[in-house]
Write a protein that binds this DNA or RNA. Structure first.
Lengths: 111, 111
DNA sequence: CTGTAGTAGTACGTCTGTCGTAGTAGTATC
DNA sequence: GATACTACTACGACAGACGTACTACTACAG
């Protein structure tokens, strides 16, 4: 199982990635992440929506109301230019982080 | 810069890795991590010592007093069998996590 | 027209790991 | 006796993730 401490700091990157091409909304993102991870990781709803709040406060995403289709009214989010920059930075940070952590992982132990 | 949110969950793996072959003590671990990361990442002292406490409470490491060499008396730590198991689990988790996160990283953005 | 399932999101409080700041305790050096 | 270096320790703050519970709205079966 993938622990949440380990993923902390990467919920932002996941959400922004899914917003890169088109605006979408919380419930869909949540399902996409679950699907993309083959069911191995689920972003909890509370975690997701608190991330939206954070990202919006920082100007990385913008929200707008969607029309009702089925169920409750959706709130859509779109990524901003500054959000794209932030995403790029986070991707670069990932590359660094990966390099760092791999120095402490003994792959002989992971047969 | 590598943020601490991103590293959270990997301090344990770093510390245990450095204990795999021989017992050592806090200050040395701290210097080793800084050195191994080419100065790119520093484990703060408070973070390190709180990790020691956690790892010892969980039975992953054991402490014993070292002799005084220069400066304050050192507390040495050695890894336990259960600590080795935990380290292996964490390494496996890393492999999974890496796979997951890479699905959300656009490498075209990281020239 | 009632009940259940699915969609979509809120509210509230807790926990844990990291960090900032500051201080302690000892040796060495000048 | 002042400073520098080693090696911790104490205390409190903060942020992100999570558990639990709840609201609101649609669709559809019976």
């Amino acid at each position: 199982m993938i622990g949440s401490d380990v993923i902390r700091g990467y919920t932002d990157i996941m959400i922004l990635f899914l917003l890169l091409n088109e605006p979408t909304y919380g419930y869909e993102i949540s399902k996409n992440i679950k699907h993309l991870s083959d069911g191995e990781y689920t972003l909890k709803e509370t975690t997701l929506y608190s991330a939206f709040g954070r990202l919006e406060r920082n100007g990385y995403i913008e929200s707008f109301p969607g029309q009702v289709t089925s169920g409750k009214r959706r709130t859509y989010y779109r990524i901003t230019e500054s959000g794209r920059d932030y995403y790029r930075d986070k991707c670069r940070e990932w590359v660094q982080t990966k390099k760092l952590i791999e120095k402490f992982v003994d792959y002989n132990e992971v047969e």
